[in-house]
């Protein structure tokens, strides 16, 4: 029984690898055959079908759907607007603060969506070519893309001690020293003294992350938490700590964040 299952898994994996290889070959072939105009045209079509309803016709985030509301576990209701592409500022990047994101960053968002924000995953709905096209189309909304080049991504290498009790303890000190609690609260519930009046760069009310509420928007993994500390979230109150904290301290902070989110240091039941 088990043997049979293992064999079928092997067969399945093998065929998946094979098919992927074939598909990738085909895609690579067809990719080059499109001209820039064609790509933009395809991008526009995809955008109008799938993105327009939220992000708006002009990419200004003022689609028909409008404000999206969400009540967190703590009972506070957070209002989210879809991203405004015309400013050319993105939160979830792998590049240093102030930089434009790489295409891979944008692709990742399209593929995985943004957790807790109703940006759905388009991984299965769109082909790679369509996704690339839509990225190209999105870039036409802001002039920044013409003026600047994306910077190089920041390398992430997780040390093995992340999540250990001593690391958590150190992270707790960093959390205290760097005044993270001013916004995120003493217990990471996003209820710090400054949280009440927090606004983003365009004057809209925003809320610091409540670690107890669930997933990180870009996906909960130690690497993602680290990258958030390093790159900051442009346009929000979350700064980059690339310069003010050593890499080690940032990883300690990751440990403590994981603890606040209840993902490590919990007693086994």
């Amino acid at each position: 029984m088990r043997c049979l299952r293992r064999r079928s898994i092997t067969v399945f994996l093998f065929s998946v690898v094979f098919l992927t290889a074939v598909v990738m070959l085909i895609i690579r072939d067809t990719e080059s055959s499109y001209a820039v105009e064609d790509i933009l045209k395809l991008g526009k079509k995809v955008y109008e079908q799938r993105c327009l309803i939220c992000h708006g016709k002009d990419g200004d985030g003022k689609g028909l759907v409008g404000v999206l509301r969400r009540t967190e576990l703590s009972g506070r209701t957070i209002e989210t607007l879809p991203r405004d592409f015309t400013i050319g500022v993105f939160r979830f990047r792998s590049t240093p603060t102030g930089c434009l994101p790489t295409d891979e960053d944008l692709l990742k968002i399209i593929d995985h969506g943004i957790k807790r924000s109703f940006m759905p995953s388009h991984k299965k709905e769109l082909t790679l070519e369509e996704k690339k096209a839509v990225i190209s189309y999105i870039k036409t909304f802001s002039e920044r893309w013409e003026e600047e080049e994306p910077c190089d991504p920041i390398p992430v290498k997780k040390p093995p001690w992340v999540g250990s009790p001593s690391s958590i303890e150190k992270g707790k000190r960093v959390y205290k020293d760097m005044k993270c609690w001013e916004c995120h609260g003493y217990e990471g519930r996003g209820d710090g003294p400054k949280a009440e009046k927090l606004k983003d760069d365009w004057g809209k009310r925003i809320w610091p992350f409540d670690f107890t509420t669930g997933e990180l928007k870009r996906g909960t993994s130690p690497e993602n938490i680290y990258i958030t500390f390093t790159t900051g979230l442009d346009g929000t109150g979350m700064p980059s700590y690339e310069d003010s904290l050593s890499e080690e301290d940032r990883w300690h902070l990751v440990s403590y964040t994981l603890k606040l989110m209840g993902m490590v240091g919990k007693k086994k039941e």
């Binding site: 509301r69 009540t71 509420t213």
Partner: peptide, 8 residues
Amino acid sequence: KISAYDEI
């Protein structure tokens, strides 16, 4: 008055 997604 408002319609919101509820985490709970």
